[in-house]
Design a protein around this nucleic acid. Structure first.
Length: 408
RNA sequence: GGAGGGGUGCCGGAGUGGUUAAUCGGAGCAGACUGUAAAUCUGCCGCCCAAAGGGCUACGUAGGUUCGAAUCCUACCCCCUCCA
C-alpha cells in the first residue's frame, strides 16, 4: 500500500486517529488487521450518521482487513451514556435481541457481510461473575471516569448518573480485549470508551488498539448530531422518496460536509463545489439534488434515485399530484353530520384517511387553507365530496377517497 | 440518617390562589415567498362536540382547603446537592 493511498484513507472523513503514526505503521506492515466496530442495538435503525464510520470500514475491508462486528447486547441493556444528557432507559434482553436482527441487516447494506466476523458480547459476558466484575472495575477510578466530558457535564448540571453507566466504558473496553482488536472504529463521542479499551488491553498484555474516529454527522436540523432520539435523522431503510426529501431539507451550509462524509464524490470535485458555492455561481439546490441521488444510489440503486428525484420535482417543485396515491375506502354516510342531507364533515374525513391526527388538527388545517380536493382549495368544514377524488393536506399528504356506499 | 433544593405541555424553561389550555425559546405543522422539504416572514401548535359557541382533560401521585388551585395544606413517589 502506497503512502498516497494511506493518506486518503486516513484523511477524508476522519476526525482523529490515536495514534496516527502507529496506524500508518500497521497499514504499511501489510498485516491483516482486526477492525472492531461495536453497534448498539438499543435502536434498531441505522441512519446516515452511522454510515460515516461504516463507509470507512468498508474501505478497509476492500483492502483485505477483517471487520469484527460486536453486537453490544449487554451494554445496550445499560444504555450508552455517550453524548447523552440523561440516563437512557434500560432495555430487556428480548428487546435487544429483536433489535439486533433488524439493525444487522441494515449494517450489511454498507458493509460486506461475507467478510465480517459477528460476535455477541454475551459470548464472554454471560460467563462473567461478581469477581470478574470487581476485578474489572478495580482497574479504574471514579475521578478518571468523571473526567469524561458527558459525565462531568451531567454531574455539574446536577443531573443523575446511574452507576451502571460507569460500567458501560468498561464493558466496551473489555470487548477489545476479548476479540484482540487492532483498531476500533466509531464517532468522536466514543473517544473515552476507546481509550479505556487501550488501557485495558495494555493491562492484559495486548498491544493497545488504534482509535479511529470519524466526525459526527449533523442532523437534518442543522445543529445537533444526527440521532434517532432527536428525530433529525435519515434512516438507511427509509423509502427513497423520503430520503430524497429529507436530504433536500438539510441546510445548505451542510452540503459539502455531507458530500465529504457520506459520498464517494472525489475531493477535486468537492473543491469545485465549494468554490461554486462561495462565489454563488453554483446553485445549492442542484448540488443538493446530486447529494440526494448519490446517497440513494448507495442504499438502493440508480433507478430508485432517479425515481425519487422525479417524485420530488413533481410534488414539491411543481406542486403536482404524485402518480401513486394511497386509496382510502370509507363510508361517506358515516362522515355525514346528522341533520344534514348533503355533504360530509371534512375534518372527520381527514382523520379517517390518516391525514390528520385528530379532528382538532384537521380543523386547524382547514382553517389554514392547507386542504384541497382535486386541486381546489377548501375552507368549508361541511362539503360535498365525490367518490374517487384526491384529497391533499399540506404539501405531502395525499389520499384518494372511495365511497364504499356507492361501490359496495 | 440529617439539612436544603427540585419535579410544569414533544424538549428546555416561566409562572407561586382568579380572563392561565398555562409567558417565552426550540422542535413540529400550515401559509406566503423561493432556484430546494435551505433561508426568511406570518400564523397555528391538548382533546371532543353539525362549532365564530360549548364541553372535557392537563402542571410527579393521591387526597384536602376554597366560590375558584399549577399555585395553599397533608401523605406518598422520584431526582439533585451538602453533611455523616
Amino acid at each position: 500500500m502506497t503512502n498516497l493511498d494511506i493518506d486518503s484513507l486516513l484523511k477524508r472523513g476522519v476526525a482523529e486517529i490515536i495514534v496516527e503514526e502507529e496506524m500508518r505503521e500497521l497499514l504499511r506492515s501489510g498485516k491483516k488487521l482486526r477492525l472492531k466496530e461495536g453497534f448498539d442495538p438499543s435502536f434498531p435503525d441505522i441512519h446516515l450518521g452511522h454510515m460515516v464510520a461504516l463507509r470507512k470500514l468498508r474501505q478497509f475491508q476492500e483492502l483485505g482487513h477483517q471487520i469484527v462486528l460486536i453486537v453490544a447486547d449487554w451494554t445496550a441493556q445499560i444504555g450508552d451514556p455517550s453524548g447523552m444528557s440523561v440516563t437512557r432507559p434500560m432495555l430487556t434482553l428480548e428487546q435487544v435481541k429483536a433489535n439486533a436482527e433488524t439493525s444487522m441487516q441494515q449494517f450489511f447494506k454498507i458493509v460486506d457481510k461475507k467478510k465480517t466476523e459477528i460476535r455477541w458480547q454475551s459470548e464472554w459476558f454471560d460467563k462473567f461473575d461478581l469477581s470478574d466484575i470487581i476485578q474489572l472495575t478495580s482497574k479504574f477510578t471514579v475521578a478518571q471516569f468523571l473526567a469524561r466530558d458527558d459525565f462531568s457535564a451531567r454531574y455539574k448540571a446536577e443531573k443523575p448518573i446511574a452507576i451502571t453507566e460507569l460500567l458501560y466504558p468498561l464493558l466496551q473496553a473489555y470487548d477489545s480485549v476479548a476479540i484482540k482488536a487492532d483498531v476500533e472504529f466509531g464517532g468522536t463521542d466514543q473517544k473515552f470508551n476507546f481509550l479505556v479499551g487501550r488501557e485495558l488491553q495494555s493491562m492484559a498484555g495486548q498491544p493497545p488498539q488504534q482509535c479511529f474516529m470519524v466526525p459526527l454527522l449533523v442532523g437534518t436540523d442543522g445543529s445537533q448530531k444526527m440521532s434517532k432520539s432527536l428525530g433529525n435523522y435519515i434512516g438507511v431503510t427509509e423509502p427513497p422518496e423520503q430520503i430524497y426529501g429529507k436530504v433536500m431539507s438539510v441546510p445548505d451550509s451542510l452540503l459539502i460536509n455531507y458530500f465529504e462524509l457520506v459520498t464517494d464524490v472525489p475531493d477535486a470535485e468537492l473543491e469545485e463545489f465549494k468554490q461554486g458555492l462561495d462565489s454563488a455561481t453554483a446553485n445549492p439546490m442542484v448540488l443538493k439534488k446530486r447529494l440526494a441521488r448519490e446517497i440513494i444510489t448507495q442504499l438502493y440503486d440508480r433507478k430508485a434515485a432517479a425515481d425519487a428525484e422525479q417524485h420530488f420535482e413533481r410534488t414539491v417543485q411543481r406542486k403536482e399530484v404524485p402518480d401513486e396515491i394511497a386509496e382510502c375506502r370509507l363510508s361517506f354516510k358515516e362522515l355525514c353530520p346528522p341533520n344534514i342531507s348533503v355533504g360530509i364533515d371534512l375534518s372527520k374525513l381527514l382523520v379517517s384517511t390518516g391525514q390528520a391526527k385528530s379532528r382538532s388538527e384537521a380543523n386547524r388545517l382547514i382553517a389554514q387553507g392547507a386542504i384541497s380536493i382535486d386541486g381546489e382549495k377548501v375552507t368549508e368544514n361541511i362539503i360535498e365530496v365525490k367518490s374517487g377524488c384526491v384529497v391533499r393536506a399540506g404539501k405531502r399528504r395525499f389520499a384518494r377517497v372511495i365511497d364504499i356506499d356507492i361501490t359496495g
